[in-house]
Structure formats: C-alpha cells, structure tokens
C-alpha cells in the first residue's frame, strides 16, 4: 500500500517502508507522456558479489503475495496481487 498523502508527516511514515522502495508489479506499458526521468529506467539484474559468504546482497528484490480484490464478471471478488519489495543501498 502506498501513501496517498503528498507530504506525509515523518512520524506517519513509520513503519511500512520507504516510499519508492516498495512498488507493485505492473503489466502496464509506458505511455508517450510519461515523466521524462522514467526514460532512464532500465532492467537490471543485480550481479552477485563474488567471494562473499553471508553478507552478499547489497541489493535485493523479492516478491510477496497480498490480499486485494478483483473484478469477475462485474462482481468484486477477493483476489491476490504480487508485490515486489526491493531494498536498495
């Protein structure tokens, strides 16, 4: 779930994670009017750091399934959505 208050007070942001670090996986395609900065988004698979033991993930991405609702034949029904959570440096 993403904050919908544009300028959330700092105390309100705890503890669901940082905005922009948790994004839903989307099937939508880029539009011609997308924000200019998004032109620089690239698909990146973080390369493993060689010769490391347990501390080997500077960046990690994983997915999880959460409850939500969907639409089936015009009826709202329980569904799930896959969410990717990525923690960067």
């Amino acid at each position: 779930m993403v904050d919908d208050t544009p300028l959330t007070r700092p105390g309100d942001r705890f503890p669901i994670g940082l905005a922009g670090h948790t994004v839903p996986i989307s099937t939508e395609s880029p539009t011609p009017g997308r924000p200019w900065g998004m032109d620089h988004a690239v698909v990146t698979i973080p390369a493993p750091v060689p010769h490391l033991d347990k501390h080997k993930k500077p960046t990690k991405t994983f997915t999880e399934t959460r409850g939500t609702k969907g639409n089936m034949d015009g009826k709202v029904v329980p569904d799930t959505q896959t969410v990717t959570v990525t923690v960067t440096d």
Binding site: L18, A19, G20, H21, V23, P24, I25, S26, T27, E28, S29, P30, G37, M38, H40, A41, V42, V43, T44, T61, T84, T86, T88
Partner: peptide, 23 residues
C-alpha cells in the same frame, strides 16, 4: 540525472531501476 526517491519502476511486468545517468 538522479532520482530524488523513486529508483524502482515496474511496468510491462518488469522491474526496472533508474541509475545515475549522464544526460
């Protein structure tokens, strides 16, 4: 160009990152 916060973009079922990029 650097993002201010939103480094991760998901579209077309892909996860993309916005790195610091020469413009």
């Amino acid at each position: 160009y650097k993002t201010i916060m939103h480094k991760i973009v998901s579209e077309e079922s892909l996860v993309k990152l916005i790195h610091t990029t020469r413009v």
